[in-house]
Design a binder for these strands. Structure first.
Length: 298
DNA sequence: AGCGGTCAAGTTGAT
DNA sequence: ATCAACTTGACCGCT
């Protein structure tokens, strides 16, 4: 069975996640900033439950949680811990409630930290900030039962092998909760599946195989080969990514995402697998539902 | 109330 | 040297 995943936001459904800017919060006295952040976290926990309800009602089996679900949580100046929030305990309780709903209905949840998370950066402060961010997402993942926190390989810095060794070293600095959820995804410029598979095996982290990125950044492996090798890195249901190019594969920027998925981009060899496929398409839930229909009609 | 400029963060490669 | 790409739309502060 293919389980389709929705990424973070909705196009038509009126479910919104709130954010705030560091600049505006920084101007407020600390207690007022914390009150605002508390209210945003509360609203986002409730929005997450609404998102999961929508997914369940519409046959969408996986939901990716926005990195900003707790806005500015790890920001160097306006960042905060849950104990500092006036309603921190209630915010956590509502996240756990969302997690209970997901568990009850067999929904999978996951995280995909932003490009700023670079575990192999040459700058120690960047690695520090990356680890802080991963620990925060792991904390929320624990509340809601998410099993994947998916990152890219980071920079190459002129030497992919050395940079992947650096990546592996940073893994050792993660808590068990973050380390146990961490996965790595092939990207569209630097690290292809063949680059990552060795570290996936040596470090024991699953490969999130992105078929679109693979086509933008090939490595000699076929889709079938990459699929098989990626699956071998998972000790649970594998999770892959899919998107279609905005103006076709011959367009000027094939790495950009289209609003919807072209069924021709859905690998035939995925059809019969037990697999989560996250749909990276700008039309969001509309794209997931359209793909679901297309797969049923085949 | 409506509008436009601005948002925490890194790295790469196209122009 | 700058800029867009990586889920981008929401928020803020001005009129």
């Amino acid at each position: 069975m293919i389980r389709l995943g929705l990424c973070c936001t909705f196009r038509d459904e009126p479910i919104k996640f709130r954010v705030a800017t560091a600049a505006s919060l920084g101007k407020l006295p600390r207690p007022e900033a914390l009150t605002k952040l508390s209210a945003l976290g509360m609203a986002n926990a409730d929005a997450l439950l609404a998102a999961l309800r929508f997914c369940h009602a519409n046959g969408i089996g996986c939901f990716r949680v926005n990195s900003q679900i707790l806005p500015l949580r790890t920001h160097p100046t306006v960042g905060y811990s849950m104990d500092e929030l006036p309603s921190g305990a209630e915010v956590v309780r509502r996240f756990e409630e969302a997690g209970a709903f997901a568990r009850e209905h067999g929904l999978r949840t996951c995280f995909h930290p932003d490009q700023f998370v670079v575990l192999n950066s040459r700058r120690p402060d960047v690695v520090e900030a990356s680890i802080r961010e991963l620990e925060y997402q792991a904390e929320v993942a624990e509340w809601i039962g998410a099993d994947v926190i998916n990152v890219h390989g980071g920079g190459a810095f002129g030497d992919k092998k050395a940079s992947l060794d650096e990546f592996a070293r940073a893994l050792d600095r993660l808590s068990p909760g973050a380390r146990g959820r961490l996965t790595v995804e092939n990207d569209d410029r630097t690290y292809a599946p063949a680059d990552l598979l060795p570290i996936c095996h040596s470090a024991g982290i699953p490969l999130v195989y992105d078929a679109h990125h693979h086509r933008c950044n090939p490595d000699g492996l076929t889709v079938e080969e990459a699929t098989g090798r990626a699956i071998a890195t998972w000790d649970r249901e594998p999770l892959f990514h899919l998107s279609s190019p905005i103006e076709g594969w011959d367009g000027p920027r094939p790495e950009r995402h289209h609003d919807f998925i072209d069924l021709g981009d859905f690998p035939d060899c995925w059809r019969a697998l037990d697999l989560t496929v996250e749909v990276e398409a700008k039309a969001k839930e509309a794209a997931v539902l359209r793909l679901k229909e297309a797969l049923l009609r085949r």
